[in-house]
Design a protein around this nucleic acid. Structure first.
Lengths: 128, 128
DNA sequence: TTCTATAGTTCGCAACATACGAACTTATGA
DNA sequence: TCATAAGTTCGTATGTTGCGAACTATAGAA
């Protein structure tokens, strides 16, 4: 099991951040982590948005977030504690993450309003 | 040749925008378009950042930007005029594009400073 | 009309990326 | 030592991307 690696702040790229957050699952993980008061384990995300995410997929997503420089992970016994690197990123790219988060929340709210009260209204994420 | 389709503003998603701009070539095209005073053709981008982009690749990139809702394309005789949809996007997701652009410029400046004066200093885009 | 050139698109394939079940590693406790 | 739990890695199926070749569409010349 290879050791956890985190890019230095200088190696964090805008493209990497945008790519990492362009996946809805990763974006959801990231924002949930950024709202959490304390660090979250990976398994806390096994069930998200009405669907179960396989452990292996989740592991890959966390790796992607980590390698993009968005989160910091630390092994703690059998589990892993994840925290965001918000403050660092904010220092390097001021306003970037808040703007993305704001946009996500606008979209989230718009979807909530346009969605009928029925439970099963699946929408594709990307515009076709 | 299928007609050009543009998503309505409501169908433009944050994920789509982030994904489109997470590619360095597309990002460069987009920002150059957003700085242009008048519409630009696709072929204006055949040579970018010291390398030639194949026509077919360029065409795909323009399609990606168009389908993400970032640009508007209009056939004008044998060529195509492209303009950004900045104002619309700004209306739907205020601050998103300026923040990304700002971050890109910070990164660009940082690279310029860390790069030696030699001409051929290719760096991989994403953090590994 | 036909020929030629130009701008961009589509096709087909190779290379790369992603999702996920199965098997694995590592830590904890009975 | 065995069982369990949390993550990781592997193998494979599927999706995405890059690019050359062939194509479509328009403009102008012969």
């Amino acid at each position: 099991m290879r050791p956890l690696t985190h890019p230095s702040l200088d190696d964090v790229t805008v493209e990497g951040i945008l790519h990492a957050l362009s996946d809805p699952v990763r974006a959801a993980i990231y924002w949930q982590l950024s709202c959490a008061e304390s660090a979250n384990t990976c398994s806390a995300f096994l069930k998200m948005e009405d669907r179960c995410i396989p452990k292996s997929t989740l592991s890959q997503h966390f790796r992607a977030l980590r390698e993009a420089g968005l989160i910091r992970s630390e092994r703690r016994g059998v589990e892993m504690l994840n925290t965001t690197r918000c403050a660092e990123i904010e220092q390097r790219f001021p306003g970037l993450l808040p703007a993305i988060k704001h946009a996500q929340s606008i979209q989230c709210e718009a979807r909530r309003q346009s969605a009928p009260p029925a439970p099963a209204t699946k929408k594709t994420a990307r515009a076709g």
